[in-house]
Write a protein that binds this DNA or RNA. Structure first.
Lengths: 319, 319
DNA sequence: TTGTAGGCGTTATCAG
DNA sequence: CTGATAACGCCTACAA
């Protein structure tokens, strides 16, 4: 007996049981405005008796407000719990959305974000952009698509500028930099900020990393070879900065006496390194909220807009 | 200018551009059976020109096959990358579904699994059960709901039985057990298996754990107090077993000379403990595939059915 | 092979 | 306050 005849309970079934029209049922379902107490009671009872469950697809199709949003990390899902930055954002967004009764979904695989009603996008490379049919807001500057895609980002370029200017004002003259992935907005923008204050750059002072600890180690070793006279390094992420400090120390350089090291993010690890890391603090506690706010603007059809959150130079001991 | 007039492009728009009916467009979209080459080409071109994107909700509502399934871990999302068992299953399911072009989604929060087309459920307690309007299959025995809910599970009870019988045959007489959470099927069934062979059980030989390393440590300490003469312990999970071994060793007992320890799962850690852990191996490589197969049976309306996968006693050195 | 018509379950807009 | 009635975008018999 395939399909045993147990059709799904619809709103009309409830209506029939309650003795009202399906429109009325729909009303009580969505807030219950403009419904008599009598009707509401009848419907509530029928709802219970029938065990009605709303059909999400039908609801969305008919134009209800999004009630599931996808947390799309373009780089790698498994990073979610490994990368403290992403993890912070994930937790923050979960919270911000839960407050509104909306669930956060983690899509993975190919056409990933098709099963959700809206999308929050992280670590997007240029290629990941492209207009989505869904309301979408990017975390980070959608380089080359500002104006088309809504976004929330920290002031990567300004932050880098602040840090490098600080190193310069501290009397450092050979300031190197370890960049993030240059196909990521944050990567290129932090490098741009470095350039802004350094002016014409010595290519030997620039090495690319990928935000990982290991790449920090490798980059520092390379820098030491290419430019043994360096006296400061601006590292595009705290995690890499830890690697840089370790490599530097291992090579016999004292931080910050011989080489000053500045990071970016203010990740938890920044307080635990030795010496504690001077870094650029992102406004982590504000990002999720802004992201969600922008998302609703999208939903309401207010054209895409970008918000750039200020960062804060946080001086500790490494520089 | 809110909503700048850029309506979403639908199948009918494509049809208009291609000069065919929307039914034809739909056909080429779904496999392209029964469509002339001419029509197909026209449609393909139109598809490209218009940048059409299917509306997932409409598609699902109209009865298309599920194309997003939720991986619902009833216990805790953050466990996904921490718990090696869950992680294995996650990876396996992602793979098994990706092969069919379907995406796995990780729902979190309240009414979690409403945004997906089907559900794979893990670590479900009795309370988490209850008929879902979506095709659903549980991983683990849905105790008290067999016959109502499709499921795939390892033979928990049989496995426990094998292990305890093995301990007994090895000459052990005071066999204790550290159970998993007793509100979880695996927890109660592994305990049941223990009971099956032990017969009438000494309550002092049974301590409950929660599958964590720490709970293994605590449980072992407690057992040592309650039944200092024990000569074997069947632990309901490998992770806990590691804790048990550590606690036992710290207390001066030799494993396996003084106390034999048997685990369950054959988690990666089982090979790395000292001594290597004798355990009950679950058929990890088969579970995801079976789960997906059962899910399709559900989708096709073949009433719920359960499959119990055999486990294998894996003797190493701890018992 | 193609197009027409009806339906999937909701929400939203209207008259009453 | 309530009930028709029309979307929403797509799939699929069924008829041509």
């Amino acid at each position: 007996m395939p399909d045993g005849g147990s059709r799904r309970v619809t709103i009309r079934d409830v209506a029939r049981v309650a003795g009202v029209s399906h429109a009325t049922v729909s009303r009580v379902l969505n807030g219950g405005r403009d419904v008599s107490v009598t009707a509401r009671r009848a419907v509530d009872r029928a709802l219970k008796r029938t065990g009605y469950t709303p059909n999400h697809h039908a609801r969305q199709l008919a134009g209800a407000r999004p009630d599931s949003v996808g947390f799309l990390n373009c780089v790698d899902v498994s990073q979610l719990f490994a990368d403290t930055n992403i993890n912070r954002l994930w937790l923050g967004c979960t919270q911000a959305l839960a407050d509104q009764g909306i669930m956060l979904v983690l899509p993975v695989g190919a056409g990933a974000a098709r099963a959700v009603d809206a999308v929050l996008m992280f670590s997007a490379r240029e290629a990941d952009l492209g207009d989505s049919p869904l309301p979408l807001v990017a975390c980070g500057t959608p380089v080359g698509h500002e104006g088309e895609i809504a976004y929330v980002t920290s002031d990567d370029r300004g932050g880098a500028r602040q840090m490098v200017a600080y190193l310069r004002e501290s009397g450092r003259r050979r300031i190197a930099t370890v960049t993030g992935p240059l196909d990521l907005p944050s990567g290129m923008l932090r490098l741009a900020g470095y350039r802004d204050v350094v002016g014409v750059v010595d290519p030997g002072l620039v090495v690319a990393g990928d935000y990982s600890y290991q790449s920090g180690v490798v980059a520092a070793e390379r820098l030491l070879r290419q430019a043994p006279d360096l006296d400061a390094v601006f590292v595009a992420s705290d995690l890499m900065a830890v690697g840089v400090i370790d490599a530097l120390t291992r090579a016999g350089r004292r931080v910050p006496e011989d080489v000053a090291v500045g990071g970016f993010d203010d990740a938890p690890v920044a307080r635990r390194t030795w010496p504690p890391l001077t870094t650029v603090r992102q406004a982590w506690e504000r990002i999720p909220g802004e992201l969600v706010r922008q998302l609703w603007r999208q939903v309401d059809g207010d054209g895409p807009s970008g918000v750039v959150l200020p960062v804060e130079l946080t001086v500790r001991a490494s520089a």
